[in-house]
Design a protein around this nucleic acid. Structure first.
Lengths: 180, 180
DNA sequence: TGCCGCATGTAACGTGTTACATGATTCC
DNA sequence: GGAATCATGTAACACGTTACATGCGGCA
């Protein structure tokens, strides 16, 4: 059974052949802001995909003791990815440390908690600016059949998420100030 | 080193003494919508907290082969929790299967992808209704020093999140319809 | 020659899920 | 007497992170 990370790898490879190293770069922040992985995990998962016949590689002469392996999708890999896309997504349990801290925030000094939220707010505002810059790079919304549609749609989601989060931080800061 | 789950347990116990079973119920959906755990994990973590002197229990006669253990915070546990609250939250990597599917959605049939988002939208709308009902239960916003403030603030966050998510689903459905 | 970026891989550990295992109490 | 709920615990496995390990190619 292919793991979700496996499909994430296939999704990136669907846009073009890449080495494990390139995949790692693509799946690190800020590029891969919805599924991240370390190179160690990517390499081991590539070996599983290889065994399942979903990817293959061309060995190339390059740096490192083992040279360079440029992975690409097999037709089976492309089919598996396409079928996975429309299957219902398994809900992952929400685990949010900041929300948990909020739940216990009544125990702490409101001014110190507000400090925490001011830091978070600054972070979200930075990301909003970054995402807006990226969004401005698109002249129009790409059509649903174009590879760029995936990038645009995830960017829209990320931007919406950061705005929601920023609004929550502002509300918290306001509450914590008023209660002091 | 106390794990995040450990602090989640302390945060629930800060509101009153509970058994492992009660904690499991409190940390399952929909109550614990920001940190969930299974009973197996909670029991093993309680044993660590016990070893660290952050919780203690009163043995009571009750059901089960081992009877009943009602856990409560020790003064050290309360201090540890309060100190943890104002420490900066470690960012967990975002891992969102639906967003990943969206990234690869250009490969699939738009009508089938739209189906996926209609299902998701229905789910979010249900949660919004549920959270709004819970919010209506509060006459006023609790003061920051009251235990209820934590519940209200997390509810606010959850509601805001579900609305953002619903808006994204609606946008996706619109795009997928227009492109067909 | 020395450092940085490219490139691949393994091992140990921590966290979380699923399944296994047991048995008392309560209500019908 | 039987079933549902309350109640605690262990073991095997999956997933993810951190650290360990190696070494080529290009540039200064």
């Amino acid at each position: 059974m292919t793991s979700t990370l496996g499909f994430a790898i296939l999704a990136v490879l669907a846009k073009g052949a890449r080495t494990g190293y390139d995949l790692t770069a693509a799946m690190s922040r800020p590029l891969g802001y919805f599924w991240t992985a370390r190179h160690s995990q990517i390499h081991t998962d590539l070996q599983k995909l290889l065994a399942d016949g979903l990817v293959r590689f061309e060995a190339e002469h390059g740096p490192g003791p083992q040279g360079k392996k440029v992975y690409h999708l097999t037709p089976e890999g492309r089919v598996a990815l396409r079928e996975w896309v429309t299957e219902p997504a398994r809900a992952r349990p929400e685990r949010d440390e900041l929300v948990l801290k909020t739940y216990a925030s009544w125990l702490a000094d409101p001014a110190e908690v507000a400090e925490l939220f001011r830091d978070q707010l600054a972070l979200h505002e930075e990301r909003i600016a970054e995402y807006e810059r990226q969004q401005a790079g698109f002249q129009t919304v790409p059509a649903t059949g174009e590879p760029a549609f995936g990038s645009y749609a995830t960017l829209w989601c990320g931007l919406s998420y950061e705005r929601h989060r920023a609004a929550w931080c502002r509300w918290m800061i306001e509450q914590l100030g008023a209660g002091a």
